[in-house]
């Protein structure tokens, strides 16, 4: 089982992506998608030495829902800043110390930070313990850092274990 299906999550994703791509659900396409889902991870397993594990996957639903709401708010906020007076912006770089250690988890967090209100992950320190975040307009960098840690990092830590 482990040999033939090294990444069950990736297999399911590939099969689903195939169905999306052909834009129809029929027996033939489901079988073809399933075959791709088994073949691609098997043939490329050398590239994926470690598999991401989700300890509490059901929490992901709430996290993604909140993220979508935050993305919407982020856009209204950025729209307001962009259409306002750009000279009055207070852009700052903020260093966020990370508690996550897993590469996959850090990648997720960096993407989440980029998609949410006024912040953008710009770089990660060589020792992978600090994320460099750029904020479009902030008066209080420490509060932004605390919010990222509490709102986005802590739930991710709980989900990924």
């Amino acid at each position: 089982m482990d040999r033939w299906l090294p990444h069950p999550l990736m297999s399911a994703t590939i099969a689903l992506l195939w169905l999306f791509l052909v834009n129809q659900v029929s027996v033939a396409q489901v079988l073809l998608g399933g075959a791709l889902g088994i073949a691609v991870p098997y043939l490329t397993s050398a590239f994926w030495p470690q598999r991401p594990r989700l300890r509490r996957p059901w929490l992901l639903v709430g996290y993604v829902a909140r993220l979508l709401v935050d993305i919407l708010i982020a856009n209204l906020e950025v729209a307001r800043l962009v259409l306002g007076a750009p000279q009055r912006l207070r852009p700052t770089f903020i260093e966020v110390p990370l508690e996550l250690t897993d590469d996959f988890a850090i990648t997720l967090l960096a993407s989440v930070v980029s998609l949410t209100p006024g912040t953008l992950s710009a770089d990660i320190a060589a020792d992978r313990a600090t994320l460099l975040v750029h904020a479009l307009d902030t008066a209080d960098p420490v509060a932004v850092c605390a919010e990222i840690k509490a709102r986005y990092e802590a739930p991710l830590k709980e989900i990924l274990g």
Partner: peptide, 28 residues
């Protein structure tokens, strides 16, 4: 939103602030 993102790209003052427009507004 796509227009707002591009306006941001055109009128924000420096590179890092300009980066915000396309990544958020345009994606939404």
């Amino acid at each position: 939103f796509a227009l707002v993102g591009s306006i941001g790209l055109a009128r924000l003052p420096d590179f890092f602030t300009r980066l915000h427009g396309p990544t958020k507004a345009t994606t939404l």
